[in-house]
Structures are given as structure tokens and as C-alpha cells.
């Protein structure tokens, strides 16, 4: 659907994209995650032909975006929800976009209903909250009924209710078989939404994996045990685990699964009041990955 291949882009001395390469597949929500300045927005602008890359190319359905006729019928995008003329009504904002793709007013009314903006269609978009503008941006992206969508930080400025709506909406778009690329600088926003995650840092891809794979790799089995026994660290070390006090009377243990820890402690007659296995979150996986990236970068430029 969307293919990004070896894109490099400098702004003056600053390297924005350093060989960015990934693919967005249909039928799933692909999260595009990285810290601010990692090159997410620049990548999206290159995909849309707004920025010219120094090297590499981005293809939408096998073609550069600039060569698509009525491009919004192939890729719908939301780069900046604030990019609108404040004095134009929501409906008229969508109307000129529809006209640019050879579409009519009927399609405008459809996407307004779909995004829940039917009631405010004739209000000036300048008076919209950021959350409503995000919905308007989604409506614009949907105008051409495209097989692929690309949304830059669509959760920004949304209230909890809006975030829940957005998640469900993105899932349903992917459920219809569309390719959905969603960027965020907060991995947590994508939990339960994304099927696949592309983690970027400093203009390149750090990880490109399914959510399940990421969680497994990050679930290194950290377990906390709360016990009063001073022998516990020694016993566990002898069994092959590493134990470190957590500071609040607990021990943080790695290297042994929870069942083995319970068995070893039980065998040695050590009593404990709590044994908890921590499931890794996407956030943990993300932090781990980006921390590595930071350490790697600290070696200096290659």
C-alpha cells in the first residue's frame, strides 16, 4: 500500500531522515512511533510529495504520490488538524477538497455523518475545538474513500471520549481492509489500536514488528516478591535468579519464571506475602527500544 524505501532528507546540517524504510500493509493499523523530532512528520510529508527527499523514494500503490490522479482517492491524509481557513464552515472546507477530487457535496455529507460532525457542518471551522478539528481532518482524509489512510498524531487534543471513538474508528477502517498508518509520540495511545508498530528514532526505523512480537520481546519476566526473610536473595541467587531490593521491602527478580520462584521459596520455607509478575506494556517495549537507540547514538556518528 505505502512503501517507504531508503529515504534520506537533510534540513541544512540536521539529518531528518536517515534511510527511513518500511511498508504499510492493508487490513491493519500500523503505529508509527518515535520521540518528537524522530522524523515521523517529515516522512509523511515526503510520502505526500510535499517535501522532496535527497535520496530514496516513497510509493503509494506503486506510484509516487505526485503522479496519482485524484490522489485522495488513493491515500487520505491528516497532517495538521489546524490547517484550515477559520472563516470557512466545516462543510465548505470539505466541499473544496471534494471538488478537487471530482467529488460532489453528497460525499461531503456522508463523511460528516461518519465522523459525527453532521450537527456542526455549517459552523465556522475556526470555532472548533482541537478534538473537533481532528474529526474534521479524519473526514477530509475519508473523502476519497481511499484504500490507505495516513494520520499524524490524530489523538492530539482529544478528550477521553474522543480517544475511545478514534480507536474504534481506526479499528473499523482497518477492518474494512484499509491500510492505516497512525503516528504518535506516545506508544500508550496505540495500545489496543495498532496491530503493527514501526518505532523510529533519529530518522531511521528501530523496530518494525507486530505488537505481539514486541510485547514478547519486552516481557523479560520481571517479578516482584514481598518477603520479610533476609535469606531470600541468597536462596534465589543460588537458584540462578538475580534479585535486587526495590526499596519498599520488596525484591525485584529476573532470570526465573514466577512458578520456579514460588517453588524455590516454598522449598526453603521462605514465606512471602506477594508475588507479582509484570506484563510488559507497549510503553515498556518502546522505552526499552528507544533507550537502546539513545545508547547506540551516544557512540557518535557513523
Amino acid at each position: 500500500m505505502i512503501l517507504v524505501n531508503g529515504i534520506r532528507k537533510r534540513f541544512g546540517a540536521a539529518v531528518a531522515l536517515d534511510g527511513m524504510t518500511f511498508e504499510v500493509r492493508p487490513g491493519q493499523v500500523t503505529g508509527f512511533v518515535g520521540p518528537n523530532g524522530a522524523g515521523k512528520s517529515t516522512t509523511m510529508r515526503v510520502i505526500l510529495g510535499l517535501d522532496r527527499p535527497d535520496a530514496g523514494q516513497a510509493l503509494v500503490e506503486g506510484k509516487p504520490y505526485r503522479e496519482l490522479a485524484d490522489p485522495m482517492r488513493h491515500l487520505g491524509s491528516l497532517l495538521d488538524a489546524g490547517a484550515l481557513q477559520p472563516s470557512r464552515t466545516a462543510r465548505n472546507h470539505l466541499l473544496w477538497l471534494a471538488h478537487s477530487q471530482g467529488l460532489g457535496a453528497r460525499r461531503v455529507d456522508e463523511v460528516l455523518e461518519q465522523t459525527g460532525l453532521g450537527g456542526v457542518a455549517r459552523r465556522r471551522a475556526g470555532g472548533f475545538s482541537l478534538g473537533m478539528r481532528q474529526r474534521l481532518g479524519i473526514a477530509a482524509a475519508l473523502l476519497g474513500d481511499p484504500p490507505a489512510l495516513m494520520l499524524d498524531e490524530p489523538f492530539n487534543g482529544m478528550d477521553p471520549e474522543g480517544i475511545i471513538w478514534m480507536r474504534g474508528f481506526l479499528r473499523s477502517l482497518a477492518g474494512q481492509g484499509r491500510a492505516v498508518l497512525v503516528s504518535s509520540h506516545l506508544m500508550g495511545e496505540l495500545q489496543g489500536t495498532a496491530d503493527h508498530v514501526i518505532v523510529v528514532g533519529r530518522g531511521r526505523v528501530i523496530a518494525d514488528a507486530s505488537v505481539a512480537e514486541l510485547l514478547n520481546s519486552a516481557s523479560s519476566g520481571r517479578i516482584t516478591v514481598r518477603t520479610e526473610s533476609p535469606e531470600a536473595p541468597g536462596i534465589l541467587a543460588a537458584a540462578g535468579a538475580t534479585a535486587a531490593p526495590t526499596g519498599d521491602g520488596g525484591l525485584s527478580i529476573t532470570g526465573l519464571p514466577a512458578e520456579r520462584i514460588a517453588e524455590v521459596l516454598h522449598r526453603h520455607g521462605v514465606t512471602f506475602s506477594e508475588l507479582a509478575a509484570h506484563r510488559a506494556t507497549l510503553e515498556d517495549a518502546y522505552l526499552e527500544l528507544t533507550r537502546d537507540a539513545v545508547e547506540f547514538r551516544a557512540e557518535g556518528p557513523r
Binding site: G49, D80, G82, A83, L84, Q101
Partner: peptide, 11 residues
């Protein structure tokens, strides 16, 4: 307001 990006994405 960056409207030009939307304009050029549409055309």
C-alpha cells in the same frame, strides 16, 4: 496555517 499542504496533497 499550513493549508498549502492540504491544497498540494489534494492537487
Amino acid at each position: 496555517r499550513g493549508l498549502i499542504r492540504m491544497t498540494l496533497a489534494a492537487g
